[in-house]
């Protein structure tokens, strides 16, 4: 049955292969945005787009309110719809490690991968950039492939002040991520999409991560922010 359980692209539990994953412990995240900043610095991520971001929701009733943070990034899905949607193979999965990466020189900019990612993890790079010559193609988080392959942790993980982000090989039963995933209740985002995400959340309240009716009647002030953002980012 095992061959039926895994699609050919999946590497979780495949002997001899690494399958990197991130665990995000929401109980520890203080919403300092250091991860966003470290990522921006690591990759010269342009203004207005993000490889990782930390949205929040205010929960509770005044005066007992708090911000509930949920750091986000590409889930480096084990069965990524973005890879199958790309007509020219510009989005691909590295079998050993499970990184979902981009061939920037191949991407034609059809945005099919953006349409197929259920997590909004992808974005279009601007037409001109000051320090980097990769422009007008789709980009996303790489799980810091260049660092991980040299034995370093991703930039966001290293910088996280609350140690809310933990990174490692899920196929190694002795790794910290394996221990956390096997001993604590974790959740992934939108598991019903069949993508098999590899970012696991501890302490995620699905009530806060789902669309909810707030989408239909968002707070006026947030809608103004949204319109201003779209105006300044060419939507």
């Amino acid at each position: 049955m095992s061959e039926l359980r895994l699609s050919s692209i999946e590497t979780r539990g495949v002997p001899g292969k690494k399958r990197y994953a991130m665990v995000i412990d929401l109980r520890r995240c203080i919403g300092c945005d250091a991860c966003m900043t470290a990522c921006k610095a690591e990759f010269d991520v342009p203004v207005g787009v993000f490889r990782t971001w930390v949205p929040y929701r205010v929960v509770g009733t005044y005066p007992n309110v708090r911000k509930h943070f949920m750091p986000r990034l590409c889930n480096h899905c084990d069965d990524p719809p973005c890879v199958r949607a790309c007509p020219v193979g510009a989005t691909y999965k590295v079998e050993d490690g499970g990184f979902v990466l981009q061939h920037y020189d191949r991407c034609i900019g059809c945005k099919a991968c953006m349409a197929s990612c259920p997590y909004n993890a992808r974005f279009m790079l601007p037409k001109s950039r000051t320090y980097t010559d990769i422009t007008s193609v789709v980009d996303k988080c790489t799980f810091c492939h260049h660092r991980v392959t040299q034995g370093l942790a991703p930039a966001c993980v290293v910088t996280c002040i609350g140690r809310a982000r933990i990174f490692g090989d899920l196929n190694d039963p002795a790794s910290e991520v394996s221990r956390l995933v096997s001993t604590l209740p974790t959740q992934v985002l939108r598991p019903e999409e069949g993508t098999k995400p590899h970012v696991f959340y501890i302490g995620l309240d699905r009530h806060n991560s789902e669309f909810g009716r707030a989408v239909y009647s968002p707070l006026e002030v947030l809608e103004e922010d949204r319109q201003a953002f779209n105006k300044n980012h060419g939507a």
């Binding site: 949205p55 992808r122 707030a214 989408v215 968002p218 922010d225 779209n230 980012h233 939507a235």
Partner: peptide, 12 residues
């Protein structure tokens, strides 16, 4: 998320 500080576009 209901509240947000990052906004997303429609790809197509």
């Amino acid at each position: 998320m209901g509240d947000f500080n990052i906004f997303h576009h429609m790809p197509w």
